[in-house]
């Protein structure tokens, strides 16, 4: 156990620049963009460009008082939305604020994934390149422990920083909103905070990332496998190799099972997101029950099996491949 803890610390030390500072920077950028937009917007100088969203999309977003755009979180719209409506039911308010929280979280999810992608891709490659692999192999740690420590740190330890920063950012924005609705006669601070879903959302994030680690295991396992096996350009191998069987499948069978499977596991299915309703089914996890429902799917466990297979391959090559 001591060994694994030391390995986690070592991984964290190496990657705190990405996993630790990454979400801090996302938060900073998000807050800066939002506050600038708010200040500029309040003096009437800014024109909010809704881009190529359809009228229906805009209408839907605006009915919740937010704008789903790349310009950060549009607080003035949120506040206008909150203030415009004369009577809020608890459910409506909660749903609107859920979407607001998920909107805050989304850029963190993406940045975390990008960092995780490159960390895993370099995890068993970079040390072979710079020969420090000789040092890592001269200490009493098995190759299995090494590979596992890299997976576990990335999938289940590093998200802690992201979760904390998502929560902190959500709290910050809600405080700003609170100030902006002061004086409203039909919406109280208490109503907003008690329907914000902040605490539940925090636990959803924790559970979400625990399960997301399993959901993405075939992706993470593949990246570690490539990192361990190849002797050059791991990025090219990781990205282009899957394309070959995908194209073959399409040419021979006319199907796209593999491509769809990969695409499926590339999505952050276990992370709480804005609702995306197609017919009667909710595509994205919105609350805990959606997240847990993933555990009952064949897709999940098939992916785990594939992930474990790639991990075993990563250990196999880690034993044999040393310097490059």
């Amino acid at each position: 156990m001591n060994t694994m803890i030391a390995l986690f610390k070592r991984e964290w030390l190496e990657h705190k620049g990405g996993f630790g500072w990454g979400p801090v920077i996302v938060s900073g950028v998000l807050i800066a963009i939002t506050l600038i937009a708010l200040v500029v917007g309040s003096v009437g100088a800014a024109h909010i460009d809704l881009g190529d969203m359809s009228d229906d999309d805009i209408a839907e977003a605006e009915s919740y008082g937010i704008q789903l755009s790349t310009d950060g979180i549009n607080l003035s719209d949120l506040v206008d939305g909150l203030l415009a409506k004369q009577s809020w039911t608890e459910a409506e308010l909660a749903q609107g604020l859920d979407m607001f929280r998920h909107g805050v979280a989304a850029p963190f999810y993406l940045v975390y994934f990008i960092i995780a992608f490159f960390v895993l891709l370099g995890a068993l490659y970079d040390d072979r390149k710079d020969r420090t692999v000789l040092f890592w192999k001269s200490i009493p740690v098995t190759d299995t422990e090494t590979v596992l420590s890299k997976l576990i740190t990335t999938a289940w330890v590093a998200p802690a920083a992201t979760i904390v920063m998502i929560f902190a950012t959500q709290v910050f924005f809600l405080i700003v909103v609170t100030f902006l609705i002061i004086g409203s006669d039909h919406l109280s601070t208490w109503q907003v905070w008690s329907n914000s879903g902040l605490i539940v959302g925090f636990f959803e994030l924790i559970v979400g990332y625990v399960i997301q680690g399993l959901w993405a295991l075939p992706i993470y396992g593949w990246l570690l496998f490539v990192s361990s096996a190849v002797t050059k350009v791991p990025f090219v191998w990781a990205v282009l190799t899957p394309a070959v069987p995908m194209l073959l499948e399409r040419a021979v069978f006319g199907s796209m099972v593999l491509a769809k499977g990969v695409g499926n596991h590339l999505q952050f299915k276990a992370l709480p997101m804005a609702a995306e309703i197609e017919g009667d089914t909710v595509e994205n996890a919105v609350e805990l029950s959606d997240i847990f429902a993933l555990l009952a799917t064949t897709d999940m466990w098939f992916g785990v099996v594939v992930g474990v297979a790639f991990m075993s391959g990563a250990v196999y090559f880690r034993r044999r491949n040393n310097e490059i």
Partner: peptide
């Protein structure tokens, strides 16, 4: 040093 102490 911390690391080696942890694993060895």
């Amino acid at each position: 040093l911390d690391f080696i102490e942890g694993v060895n």
